[in-house]
Each structure stands twice: as C-alpha cells, then as structure tokens.
Simulated assay, not measured.
Amino acid sequence: MQASRRSYRYVGPEDVRAAVGPDDGGAVIRTAADFANWATAQTAGDLAEPFTFVVGMDGVLRLAPRRSEHIACAGEDRVLSAGEMSFCGDGGCWRVDEVSNQSTGYCPDTTSWASVAEALDRAGLDHPDSFTHEVIFRRCPGCQERTIVREGHFVCVFCDSDLPARWNLDQRVPRGNRGSSGPAVR
C-alpha cells in the first residue's frame, strides 16, 4: 500500500455514527476462503444482493450485509475506499462481479479504486479493472451540502453553485452548517 494514498473520514449524518455499536465491524477478508466462509454463513450461498464493503486503513477488505452502514463496517475508522460489491462463483471459485464507490457516509473519490484492487488482489479474488459503477461526490462550496454529480453536471441541486472539479468532501464543515442528512441526487 502506498503511504501517499488518500484516506476518507466519515462525512455522513451524526445520528448514523451514533448508532454504531461496539461489536459492529465488517468481516475481515484476507483470502478467498475467508470470503467463501463468510458469504456462505451470511447468505446461505445466495449472492444475488451486493454487500457493503470498506477497505480499512490496513488495506484489508471488510464486508457486511448490504443494509449495513459503511461506518459500522469500518468500525468507525477512516477508510481507503467504501462502496458496494457483488460476487459470483463458479465451481467454488469466487470473483467480484460488480463494484462501486457508492457510500454516502464516506463519499470516496473514484481514485480509491487502487486500494480496492490491491485488497482484492491480496485476498486472491478476481475482479474488474475498475469500478463498474463510479459515483462522483462533491461538497457544494456555497451551501456545504454533499451531492452526487450526474451526467457531468457539476452544479449544486440545492443552490445552483458550481461544484469543484476535484473531490472535496473531506473539508471540515462548521457544526452549525452541516446541510442535509444525505447527498443530493441529480
């Protein structure tokens, strides 16, 4: 893992953070066998639904059921990436079928793919060459809302301010100006 790789702090709603319990945390997946054992226990072999994932600061993949919050999967820590991941298996060999950076709690940049690929390579899980669905997150400099850029339209849906070309979600927002509980969808 490169020391210069960006990490992401939780930027989502505080009530979601407050709901994380001391025993929350995703299953650590260091090997394909770890994944197979976990997936079988979680889904009885049915992998039709994607999983919540994070890549922790240690570069290791962590998985949780899809309806889990990313901050819980991460044990409230910073992450190198976060999103959703689906798998398919053939003859006992598992591979990643689809993967996105869709996490409205961490809002990772699309450049976080490198950390995902490294974690999957280390675990021995075959995967696509990039996110199969990229989400572009930005914080509006005008109203401070988290937002999702759609169709290359870098304009805030709340206040019509131009959004920056570069990822900027990790900027601290004053406590009284946190905006809504989730990113806008345009």
Rank of each mutant, 00 (worst) to 15 (best):
M1E: 14
Q2M: 10
A3F: 04
R6W: 01
R6A: 02
R6P: 14
V11W: 01
P13A: 13
R17E: 15
R17D: 05
A19H: 15
V20K: 03
V20N: 07
V20R: 05
G21H: 08
P22M: 06
D23R: 12
D23S: 05
D24C: 15
V28N: 06
I29Q: 03
R30M: 09
T31G: 07
A33Q: 11
A33E: 07
D34Q: 04
A36I: 09
A36G: 10
N37P: 02
T40K: 07
A41Y: 07
Q42D: 12
T43I: 05
A44Y: 07
G45V: 07
G45F: 02
F51Y: 14
T52K: 10
V55S: 11
V55A: 13
G56E: 10
D58I: 03
G59D: 10
G59T: 00
V60I: 02
V60Y: 03
S68A: 12
E69M: 04
H70D: 04
I71H: 01
A74Y: 08
A74P: 00
G75L: 01
E76F: 09
R78H: 07
V79C: 04
L80A: 11
S81Y: 11
S81W: 03
A82P: 01
G83M: 08
G83C: 11
M85P: 15
M85T: 15
S86N: 10
F87M: 12
C88K: 14
G89Y: 13
D90T: 11
G92N: 09
G92T: 15
V96M: 03
E98T: 10
S100D: 09
N101H: 03
N101L: 06
T104I: 08
G105P: 11
Y106V: 04
P108D: 04
S112A: 15
S112W: 02
A114R: 03
A114T: 03
A117S: 10
E118W: 05
A119I: 11
L120H: 06
L120G: 00
L120Y: 01
A123E: 00
D126W: 13
D126G: 04
H127A: 13
H133N: 07
F137G: 02
G142P: 11
Q144M: 08
E145H: 07
I148S: 03
E151C: 06
E151R: 13
F154T: 09
F154N: 06
C156Y: 05
F158W: 11
C159G: 00
C159P: 01
D162S: 06
W167V: 14
W167H: 11
W167T: 10
L169E: 08
P174R: 11
R175V: 14
G176Y: 01
N177V: 10
R178M: 08
R178L: 13
G179Y: 00
G179H: 07
S180A: 15
S180N: 10
S180L: 09
V185N: 12
V185M: 13
R186T: 15
R186E: 06
